[in-house]
């Protein structure tokens, strides 16, 4: 069993202290592990197997962090990195599968023997990714919430703990983030329509 690099706790602590390089290292590490795991799944996946991407994130957490108890802040850093990495991987796969066909609610991208299904009602992964990029510059706090909630699969409660914020704040800001993303995705659709 791969127990991961032993200094992960130190890395997370460094991120907690605001070490930018550590943030990059963490992201790279999580990204590599997610890819590796997704790859392993692809190779050995029995038929009909579905795994939510967020379950994959949790699996990576178990693998890398394992049984060590981490502070909520550190868990937050980890899941934020994992959420970012997940987003990158999903987007990359969507791109590699070629142009997405538009129209219809649910879009499905097949590649190799794996498919990625995204159910983002009014937009697809790439549009969502673009919107997220914009959100990061305008609303970094809310961007963080979406990354944890949606891409890393944390609950509101977990997100609140990870961000050291009251649950009510997270719920309020999550509401805003959804509305904002929804509005942005719709606006983009209009802009891009011929």
């Amino acid at each position: 069993m791969d127990t991961g690099p032993p200094d992960l706790t130190r890395l997370l602590n460094a991120v907690e202290r605001g070490d930018v390089k550590a943030s990059d290292d963490l992201l790279r590490l999580v990204y590599a592990e997610l890819r590796r795991l997704a790859g392993a799944l692809m190779a050995n996946t029995p038929p009909g197997q579905t795994l939510q991407a967020t379950a994959l994130v949790h699996e990576v957490y178990l693998r890398l962090v394992g049984k060590e108890t981490q502070s909520w802040e550190n868990r937050g850093h980890f899941f934020f990195a994992a959420g970012r990495a997940m987003r990158d991987i999903l987007v990359e796969r969507a791109r590699s599968a070629g142009r997405l066909k538009r129209g219809g609610g649910r879009r499905r991208v097949d590649f190799e023997n794996l498919s990625v299904a995204v159910d983002a009602e009014d937009g697809d992964l790439l549009a969502l990714d673009e919107a997220m990029q914009r959100m990061e510059s305008e609303y970094p706090w809310e961007h963080r919430i979406v990354t944890l909630r949606f891409f890393a699969g944390m609950t509101n409660e977990e997100t609140a703990s990870a961000m050291s914020a009251p649950l009510r704040t997270i719920e309020r800001d999550w509401r805003f983030a959804r509305a904002w993303l929804h509005q942005t995705l719709n606006a983009n659709d209009l802009e891009h329509s011929p």
């Binding site: 996946t45 991407a53 999903l90 009602e121 509305a179 904002w180």
Partner: peptide, 20 residues
């Protein structure tokens, strides 16, 4: 948007899935 956002938009059930 807040009023018309689909109930499932960005919710758990719509999180990206990897499946074969």
């Amino acid at each position: 948007s807040d009023e018309h956002v689909h109930g499932r938009f960005l919710q758990e059930s719509t999180q990206p899935k990897v499946e074969s």
